[in-house]
Design a protein around this nucleic acid. Structure first.
Lengths: 211, 211
DNA sequence: CGGAACTTAGCACGATCGTTCGCGCTAAGT
DNA sequence: ACTTAGCGCGAACGATCGTGCTAAGTTCCG
């Protein structure tokens, strides 16, 4: 607590260039593997074998499995932010951002960035009953995402693009539900038709259909 | 394949009374544990310790871990059918059944039947990427549940309780999403207020509010 | 009442789990 | 060019994983 991240006193450590590169490669593979085996089921041995290095060499990058899980969650958050959040923020404020965030998520699934669908959907249900830093990190990201949608909805209402009777929190909850249902059905049945159905539902719900 | 389930020739086996009782006790504990540790994370040792018997004694009831997982999914299906599906079927056909199935699910969560929320929500995302009999069993149950809701919706439309423009499949998808969002948020934040929000959303969506 | 099932426990196996240690190597700073 | 510190590997640890075998104990049928 007393020492900052870039403290000179404690000299925590100063990673080398190739070290950071392998660490990044580890985390990319870890995020993918975790969507298949889960954050707990992700084993050091499997992960090491997947990227072709030794268990101990990999383990040295993180002092414990929990640190690896924490870093994996952060990496998944970066990927999700780049593929889903940023495209949404690039759209015009209001209703367009609501549609964009859903569409970006559907493309995130369709592109099969992760073999197990959405990282956080699976992680949330897995770590939800296990108190600790990992659960806190996942919960924080999920809350942030819902708050983002809530903000989009509030702006859309202010701009008169949605009825004044709409409640941002309720709408954000519904869209979050549509997203979760899409992910669950897509993962379970591996059927791209699910994405078409989801797109129809979003258009209808946002009044972008026959209005 | 050639021998039936109740064949006399092969004399598959004839369980004893106390055997079935312990087997039932094992499966009840297994369903609960699986909502916390996952179907894969559920270990024979932990399960045996949880109900106070030996690993090998428990293992004898199922020839393999996969058989245990299969039986656990069926047990969870029985519990879900009793707590969610049956109350819904008891309501008047049509719109009332749609409202009842959602309310029964919310009470299923509130009653905390399982420590990890909805069994199938977690199981679907866990086994979705792992082909095999266990995934098939989970997928079949999930499809059956969505079809049930779809049937309720179709009846409600026929009875004129919902606009003719409604599509049963789309509505079933949306309600499934609301259910998944409720479970995810309830498990992650352990906040009963989520259930109130979900009830509001369902009432609004089904036109039971100010109409 | 006796014997044939079913039920449960004890023990042990190979594999894999997370974790630690020590040694060669290589990139970076002076 | 020489030093230094981060990097990666191999080997090994105690624990636990799923899975068998064997032998007691218990219930049920004739």
């Amino acid at each position: 607590m007393t020492e900052g991240a870039t403290s000179q006193r404690t000299r925590a450590r100063q990673p080398r260039a190739d070290g950071e590169r392998t660490r990044a490669a580890i985390l990319r593979a870890a995020a993918s593997l975790a969507t298949v085996d889960g954050l707990e089921g992700l084993s050091i041995g499997n992960l090491a074998a997947a990227i072709g290095m030794s268990k101990s060499g990999l383990y040295a990058h993180f002092g414990s499995k929990q640190e690896l899980q924490l870093a994996t969650v952060q990496e998944a958050g970066r990927i999700f932010a780049g593929e889903v959040v940023e495209p949404a923020l690039a759209a015009p404020a209001g209703l367009a951002q609501l549609a964009a965030v859903c569409e970006a998520f559907f493309e995130h699934l369709q592109r099969r960035t992760f073999p197990g669908g959405c990282f956080f959907a699976g992680a949330a249900l897995e770590v939800g009953t296990r108190p600790g830093p990992v659960k806190e990190a996942v919960a924080a990201f999920q809350s942030g995402f819902v708050d983002l949608i809530k903000g989009f909805a509030a702006t859309a209402i202010e701009l008169g693009e949605l009825p004044a009777g709409e409640d941002p929190q309720r709408l954000a909850f519904e869209l979050n539900g549509i997203i979760l249902a899409t992910d669950t059905n897509f993962v379970l049945h591996d059927d791209p038709a699910v994405l078409d159905l989801a797109r129809q539902v979003v258009r209808r719900r946002l009044g972008l259909d026959g209005s």
